[in-house]
Design a protein around this nucleic acid. Structure first.
Length: 847
RNA sequence: GCCCCAGUGGCGGAAUGGUAGACGCAGUAGACUCAAAAUCUACCGCCUUCACGGGCGUGCUGGUUCAAGUCCGGCCUGGGGCACCA
């Protein structure tokens, strides 16, 4: 029989699937629905191994659910706005639009070669005017509902990408894309009021039981809720100063009050105090990067003012400006309690301030308990605190809060780390913000009937700054309110907005409104979302916010967009370096005996650790090349084999060859099946070989089904190897049972290797497609066994094993166990003290 | 510094508290072949033994249990996240 020709066969089946429209999304029926979605790609030009892994997993689930009878929605689109298109446009003189759509065309072909069961009729790109038109409507809806505000704020300015960034997009003080050190600027910008939903977004995490705990924790930390007390100090100049604390219980341990250098009061005082002005300038010079903060010493400047203690007007605390107090959290002012806060302690030691312990651990003596170089932050009882003495920390917190609330100078409050989402971007390749600035009327929304605000046909990248701002013709318009001359908002929306609702649009991409309510209500939430962990906060938080905001507007019913989330691991490869320390691509290397040599010249290269495939380390393998050599099923099988899906997988040539051998092996088993009874012949287990085959097949059905339900692809793969081994071991024996086992192997492997499955199905004599064939069911009678092998331990060490009837009487099992040769030897004449029989598993004899 | 996760053969990895190493890769020996490829068969944790067998073994260490890779305490190593958030 001929070897399996993947290239021809795969193309043939892809055409056949398309001809029969097998993956078209079914109409809404009573069938259970399953919305399977992988994070849509940025159209960079070609797919990489990470895409291959991501889309293979999604496709397995989609095909598996379809076979099980679910109505499946499995769409694909393009996250198509963004900077790479602009860079390409500037570098190559092409238009970002042409560049993007050409990339999409190429990548679509590549994805189709993988044989994904996608409903391509729903495809769209976020840069399609039809899509961003709807997004502009959403923006106006959000604006009308008060979810959007325009504010002047200190913003993160990326000097390389020439745009502002949201807080989430600044990592270690650098832009998430460019890596440039972010500068601070004051600009008037648009914000989504995500903080309005902070509590909901936090509480919602508890309902996401099919999300990785890790992602939920990261989001919880990012939202950063803290409960505390806001209250006022009266200063010696008569002014009031608001502070926030989570430790009101430590108020009698206060020894200073500190302001952020960016606090308005600090600024006002600096106007009359040159020393303070210089100090503030010094603080601003210190970077915000982690490394800087780590090293930064606690520095302070005494303003000369004092603050009266809220419970004792005669107790005066010095008011300092301190470099470690952040304007961006709480009120930008704190009271310092050195005994119970490490930062305050460092500061107090440096400036010789009092350190009074007010919380004493239960097992310590309040008269002798002292603070050294470490603040005490644990539980305990209050001391040195007048009316709080003897209370627990919690009781003291409540007592202080109540008293200050009663006195009208305090209030229990909640603060979040989460800031509003700044969405204005000074970039031309994005969704234009549909707003108009009128000198007479101020900021005016573009009326919906005048949408879309289209991007200009051509974008001139030769200008400095934002090309949309420089495009006078595009920018100039009339005010919808007064009809006078006005200008468009020349900013575009952060591209994370584009990906924050695309999953809802997929439910009906033709809808005249952003979302077709009936379609969205039917399909949402996404049942299984799959993507990289790198979106744990950014994309996944924004999408959750959008969904909640849309739900408030009545556009969708669900509060959470993704019921199930799976974060897959990265694809890695060994790295190679030549004698000069230059990275060398695997294409240029030949491996022999665990060593690596240059193909050109034969010089040995050093083998480095396996790392995420990246251009900079040259350890990239192109999926195209693998598909061309072995076919899509081989690469799909590799992506699912061995390594659990959430872990990083290492690509190896040997592994790929092994996968391809298995493809050929299945083909051989199915295509050399002459002598098999006709399709549809009922299997009978009337001989040992048949029984063994039937049991192997039905156990595989049970196991693979369970593994796929739980996304344990690597285990499902192992089960299929086991079944193939059993079929191989049976040789030509088995008749109808052999046919059943072969068909089971084909049906179970179909979600993973869909093309091969179709070829084998045809070879086994079927006319219809596997892709339209229901998932097999196991017969429980065949997955049971009546003989079991029991191990016998003596004092916990395994000494023998023997076969026995399943559920055999414990007395009989005990007797048999004691007769085993190994057991007799191990007992060496000793009398057993105790015999534990675990039915159908093990016997442990204690002697 | 804080939080989370993970440490199992040469490698990727299996294992409801119940026979550790399923399955795959690599490797060894053999069959087929003029030969090679492909394929098939057997072996494949370490030490010891002619063999039967015996000893050791899931990062280290202590504990719970008839029984621990699995549960509990302490530690080591690696990875990830957060990081002056009051």
């Amino acid at each position: 029989m001929a070897r399996y020709n993947a290239r021809e066969e795969e193309k043939r089946w892809q055409q056949e699937w398309e001809r029969q429209k097998l993956f078209a999304t079914p109409a809404h029926t009573s069938a259970p629905k399953c919305y399977v979605l992988e994070m849509f790609p940025y159209p960079s030009g070609r797919i990489h191994m990470g895409h291959t892994r991501n889309y293979t997993m999604g496709d397995v689930i989609a095909r598996f659910r379809r076979a099980q009878g679910y109505a499946v929605l499995h769409p694909m689109g393009w996250d198509a706005f963004g900077l790479p298109a602009e860079n390409a446009a500037r570098d190559k003189g092409v238009s970002p639009r042409d560049w993007t759509y050409e990339n999409i065309a190429h990548m679509r072909d590549q994805l189709k070669m993988m044989g994904l069961s996608i409903d391509w009729s729903r495809e769209f790109a976020t840069c399609d005017p039809a899509y961003y038109h709807q997004q502009q409507k959403l923006f106006l809806d959000f604006h009308a509902a008060g979810f959007v505000h325009r504010s002047e704020a200190d913003v993160n300015w990326d000097p390389v990408d020439m745009t502002v960034l949201a807080n989430e997009q600044v990592i270690d003080g650098r832009g998430w894309r460019s890596g440039a050190v972010v500068e601070r600027k004051k600009l008037s910008q648009w914000f989504f009021r995500i903080t309005q939903f902070a509590d909901e977004l936090l509480a919602g995490l508890d309902t996401l039981d099919r999300w990785p705990e890790k992602v939920r924790t990261m989001q919880r930390n990012w939202i950063g809720r803290s409960e505390g007390l806001g209250f006022q100090f009266t200063l010696s100049n008569g002014e009031k100063l608001d502070v926030f604390t989570t430790r009101p219980d430590t108020l009698f341990g206060a020894s200073f009050v500190a302001l952020s250098p960016d606090h308005p009061l600090a600024g006002a005082l600096a106007a009359q105090d040159a020393g303070l002005e210089a100090f503030i300038a010094e603080c601003r010079r210190t970077g915000t990067a982690e490394a800087d903060i780590e090293k930064a010493e606690k520095l302070g400047y005494d303003t000369g003012l004092t603050a009266a203690h809220p419970f004792d007007g005669n107790w005066k605390l010095p008011v300092m400006v301190a470099n470690f107090v952040l304007m961006g959290y709480g009120t930008g002012a704190i009271f310092g309690c050195p005994a119970h806060d490490q930062r305050d302690l460092d500061f107090a030691r440096k400036y010789g301030l009092t350190v009074t312990p007010v919380v004493v651990p239960e097992d310590a003596d309040p008269r002798t308990f002292a603070i050294g170089t470490e603040a005490y932050t644990g539980p305990g009882r209050l001391a040195n605190s007048r009316f709080l003495d003897g209370l627990t920390v919690d009781a003291a917190k409540a007592e202080v809060a109540s008293r200050l609330e009663k006195a009208g100078i305090g209030r229990r409050t909640v603060h979040y780390r989460l800031r509003d989402w700044l969405v204005s971007r000074q970039r031309p390749w994005g969704c234009p913000i549909p707003m108009i600035h009128c000198p007479a009327c101020g900021v005016v929304p573009v009326p919906k009937d005048q949408l879309p605000v289209l991007l200009p046909e051509t974008i001139n990248f030769k200008v400095r700054g934002n090309p949309l701002d420089a495009d006078t013709a595009w920018k100039t318009t009339t005010c919808p309110k007064c009809g006078g001359p006005a200008t468009r908002d020349t900013d575009t929306l952060d591209t994370f907005a584009d990906s924050s609702w695309y999953f809802a649009r997929f439910t009906n991409p033709e809808a005249a409104e952003p979302v077709d309510k009936a379609a969205a209500d039917y399909w949402l939430p996404v049942d299984q979302y799959i993507g990289g962990i790198e979106h744990a906060i950014l994309h996944l938080l924004y999408a959750r916010y959008f969904t909640r905001a849309m739900a408030k507007l009545g556009l969708v019913k669900v509060a959470e967009p993704f019921a199930g989330l799976f974060t897959q691991g990265m694809v890695c490869h060994e790295t190679y370096k030549d004698a000069d320390g230059n990275w060398v691509s695997p294409d240029e290397v030949e491996k022999r005996d665990g060593k690596a040599f240059l193909l050109d010249g034969g010089a040995e290269v050093s083998i480095g650790p396996s790392e995420k495939m990246s251009k900079s380390k040259k350890n990239v393998i192109a999926p195209e090349a693998i598909i061309a050599e072995y076919g899509a099923d081989t690469i799909r099988w590799f992506m699912l084999s061995d390594t659990p899906p959430e872990r990083d997988i290492e690509w190896t040539d040997a592994g790929a060859e092994g996968c391809h051998r298995f493809v050929q092996r299945i083909w051989r088993l199915c295509s050399e099946a002459e002598g098999l009874p006709a399709p549809g012949t009922a299997p009978v287990a009337d001989d040992a070989a048949s029984m063994a085959l039937r049991q192997a097949a039905h156990r595989a059905i049970a196991a693979v089904t369970d593994d796929l339900e739980n996304l344990r692809f690597n285990r499902a793969v192992a089960q299929l190897y086991t079944l193939a081994n059993a079929i191989g071991a049976a040789g030509k024996a088995g008749g109808a049972a052999r046919r059943e086992a072969l068909e089971t192997l084909v049906l179970l492997s179909a979600p993973m290797m869909p093309h091969l499955a179709e070829s084998c199905w045809r070879a086994l004599g079927h006319d219809r497609l596997v892709a339209g064939t229901p998932w097999p069911r196991h017969d429980p009678a065949l997955t049971r066994t009546d003989q079991v092998v029991l191990a016998v331990q003596v004092n916990g060490k395994r000494r023998a094993e023997f076969g026995v009837q399943k559920d055999a009487d414990a007395k009989i099992v005990e007797k048999l166990a004691l007769e085993q040769e190994g057991v007799v030897r191990a007992l060496d004449g000793k009398t057993p003290k105790k015999i534990i029989v675990v039915p159908n598993r093990i016997v442990n004899i204690v002697a």
